[in-house]
């Protein structure tokens, strides 16, 4: 019985890998890889690096993260330089200033409250980093680094560290853990509540990571599937429908790119605020 199942699955895998599979190309676009596929201009193979027995090869998503970081550094160093000339910026700096003020006044200030200044650089960095990564996925030949769960999980972990360390620095390590359990809980409930609250600490970043990853992956899969309909059905008549729907999803993706960057930052900020001001 085992033998037959294995036989079948091996055949399926072989069929997929030989180009017979109709969905493998979707995954090819979504997933990380060791090469930059710039066809028809060629394929760039990225170097493999091993450090202390760990495989830290450069991948497509890593390259696009670097690209995002590079863009951000160039843009914001230029923006910062315009403030040296005068307090009133001109041109592009104005645009970025509006977003910076948005993050400060609409995200950090209301959710964290007093003491938000310390976390503002982190929130700004994470907001712009996620936003740029999301948008790079919508550029031709681009790839969405934030549709890699390893990337989102790492960002969420950094958020987690900011939340916990921020809370501990404000309330003291002991005070922070005491404050996790709400006041007025009966003594016999305390062990259960402690477990629940500590679990809650970890579910927050987990939700952050999965939300960003799923949102950024889903849109691309839908676009690719819509385009794929043309090839799966072997007809051009479906093309207008496919293309118009794909365009619609693409515009939706633009919105989602903004919204997910906002939500990640907003929730990080909210959790930081909750860790800082535990009485609420």
């Amino acid at each position: 019985m085992n033998f037959e199942l294995l036989n079948k699955s091996a055949d399926t895998v072989q069929a997929n890998s030989q180009g017979g599979g109709e969905s493998s190309w979707i995954m090819h676009h979504i997933l990380d890889s060791r090469e930059l596929d710039l066809s028809p201009f060629g394929i760039i193979h990225l170097p493999e690096i091993h450090l202390f027995g760990m495989d830290i090869s450069i991948t497509k998503h890593v390259v696009f993260m670097w690209l995002a970081a590079l863009i951000l550094i160039i843009v914001f160093l230029k923006t910062a330089r315009t403030y040296k000339k005068s307090l009133v910026p001109k041109g592009f700096s104005n645009l970025f200033e509006i977003v910076v003020i948005f993050v400060r006044d609409e995200i950090a200030k209301p959710t964290i409250g007093s003491g938000y200044e310390k976390f503002l650089p982190y929130l700004l960095s994470v907001f712009f980093f996620i936003l740029t990564c999301n948008l790079l996925g919508l550029v031709p030949y681009g790839s969405t680094a934030t549709s890699n769960i390893a990337v989102t999980a790492t960002l969420a972990t950094i958020s987690f560290l900011f939340i916990q360390i921020g809370g501990m620095m404000k309330n003291g390590i002991l005070g922070y853990f005491k404050g996790l359990v709400p006041h007025g809980v009966p003594l016999w409930l305390l062990p259960i509540m402690a477990v629940v609250e500590i679990l809650g600490l970890f579910t927050k970043p987990f939700a952050l990571a999965v939300r960003l990853f799923a949102n950024m992956t889903a849109g691309h899969i839908v676009i690719l599937a819509l385009i794929g309909l043309i090839f799966i059905l072997h007809t051009y008549f479906v093309a207008p429908v496919s293309v118009s729907f794909a365009l619609f999803i693409y515009l939706l993706e633009l919105l989602v790119a903004l919204i997910q960057a906002y939500i990640f930052t907003m929730l990080s900020s909210l959790f930081i605020g909750m860790a800082l001001h535990q009485e609420h």
Binding site: D55, V62, A69, F76, L77, P121, Y122, S125
Partner: peptide, 27 residues
């Protein structure tokens, strides 16, 4: 992929410290 975790951490922290020092503070 643990390699991606490694590079994400490095990239983000690098970006964070550069921007914090040279962009966010002056802005």
């Amino acid at each position: 992929n643990p390699g991606v975790i490694f590079w994400t951490t490095i990239t983000f922290l690098f970006l964070f410290f550069i921007l914090k020092k040279f962009a966010w503070k002056p802005i």
